[in-house]
């Protein structure tokens, strides 16, 4: 039951994050996705987001659900950007976070 409330919160955070990301990215980029460079802010957001969502046990002082909620929100902001944008950032963020997850759980 309590689990379900948390999952609802995560989903809501994802949805709101996507909407925010969509709106902001349309403000920021006026042309469709043609120049294939990496957006630094989006990259930072993605890395922080994936870190928080996957490696939340590393942050012991914050309750896990708060860090996951924030993490999902940031992930959604990058994923939800204007079509084409945010793909590379997401992949890099996920790869970094996954690497640390593997280090944390498998190797240690």
């Amino acid at each position: 039951m309590n689990d379900q409330i948390l999952y609802l919160v995560y989903i809501l955070s994802f949805v709101i994050g996507s909407i925010v990301g969509l709106v902001l990215s349309y403000k920021k980029y006026t042309e469709p996705f043609v120049t294939r460079n990496i957006d630094l802010i989006a990259l930072i957001l993605a890395i922080i987001g994936w870190m928080l969502a996957i490696n939340y046990p590393l942050l012991t002082m914050i309750p896990s659900y708060i860090s996951i909620t924030i993490g999902v929100f940031l992930i959604a902001m990058v994923i939800g950007m204007r079509p084409g944008y945010g793909r590379y950032e997401t992949i890099i963020g996920f790869a970094l976070a996954g690497l640390i997850w593997i280090l944390r759980t498998v190797i240690l």
Binding site: V15, G80, P83
Partner: peptide, 11 residues
């Protein structure tokens, strides 16, 4: 195709 954002259906 680029396709719509994932939340498009919800919107």
């Amino acid at each position: 195709r680029p396709g719509p954002p994932i939340i498009q259906h919800l919107l």
